[in-house]
């Protein structure tokens, strides 16, 4: 299970040069591109795509921020500038289907790009994993066993409440034969990690507690071995929380893609 990728990640430009089109575009996102922890998830998503033999590509240096944090912060100008520039790139490559590594990118491209001229079939990577499991292309074998392990899943707001995706990530965990435990506030009642709405990029307002601490306390109440995430921002917030609670030796915070890759020995 080396960290390194033992295969090349194809870019759209390379595919175009060969006169080929991918089945799906993997939209990596800013966190997935630059954040060290999220990069691991990005590589695991590639490993999964590579493993099942799906023809995919990334935009590489042609990708740019979707504009999500600008829009949530109220800068509609910057959002639409980013969106229209991205849409031009996506349309030029004749993109039909996109999988994203981040619920924020997912929500923005899926819901807010169509009105600006960019209409694509957009799925989040947990939905891709669910589809692959349903099609029998992906199992949980040949790798680390999660059997019997206590896993609790944290719903990201923009995947869960924002778009009603609650089952896909849970489906990916079900095949592990692990012990899934829900937090008191889960699914449509899930508690935010504290990073949404551009909070990721600023200090919180004055209060008596940080939101991620409130969340991690609830997660730790389930006495999990693994806290599963599916958003790079949640990942940061949850890991910080686990560290602050001195639980990083006992509790792992892993993305669904990482868990899937590990379970399959990728």
């Amino acid at each position: 299970m080396s960290e390194q990728l033992n295969f090349e990640v194809p870019t759209m430009a390379e595919l175009l040069a060969k006169g080929e089109e991918p089945e799906i575009l993997f939209w990596v996102g800013c966190a997935g591109s630059y954040d060290e922890r999220a990069q691991k998830t990005t590589r695991d998503i590639c490993k999964i795509l590579h493993h099942v033999g799906m023809k995919y590509a990334v935009l590489g240096t042609e990708e740019s921020c979707t504009g999500d944090p600008a829009k949530r912060a109220g800068n509609e100008f910057l959002f639409q500038m980013q969106a229209m520039t991205n849409i031009e790139v996506l349309n030029a490559y004749n993109i039909k289907k996109i999988v994203t590594g981040c619920p924020h990118c997912f929500n923005t491209i899926k819901n807010e790009y169509p009105g600006l001229g960019g209409t694509y079939e957009v799925i989040h990577h947990t939905q891709l994993i669910q589809d692959l499991i349903n099609d029998g292309k992906l199992k949980a074998e040949g790798g680390e066993s999660f059997k019997g392990k206590k896993i609790t899943y944290h719903d990201p707001c923009y995947l869960g409440r924002g778009n009603g995706v609650y089952e896909a990530p849970r489906k990916a965990l079900e095949v592990l034969d692990a012990q899934l435990v829900e937090m008191k506030r889960c699914k449509s009642n899930g508690l935010c990690c504290g990073a949404g709405g551009a909070q990721m990029f600023k200090e919180p307002e004055k209060g008596n507690k940080d939101i991620n601490i409130e969340r991690i306390e609830e997660a730790l109440e389930t006495q999990p071995q693994v806290i599963a995430a599916s958003c790079p921002f949640c990942m940061t917030m949850l890991r910080d929380g686990v560290k602050l609670k001195d639980q990083d030796q006992n509790v792992q915070v892993l993305d669904i893609a990482e868990i899937t890759a590990r379970a399959n020995g990728l």
């Binding site: 990640v9 591109s33 630059y34 980013q82 990029f201």
Partner: peptide, 15 residues
């Protein structure tokens, strides 16, 4: 083109 101060040229470094 990213909310953090990274160069766009480094976007694919993770690979």
């Amino acid at each position: 083109g990213a909310p953090w101060k990274y160069s766009p040229a480094d976007r694919l470094n993770w690979a």
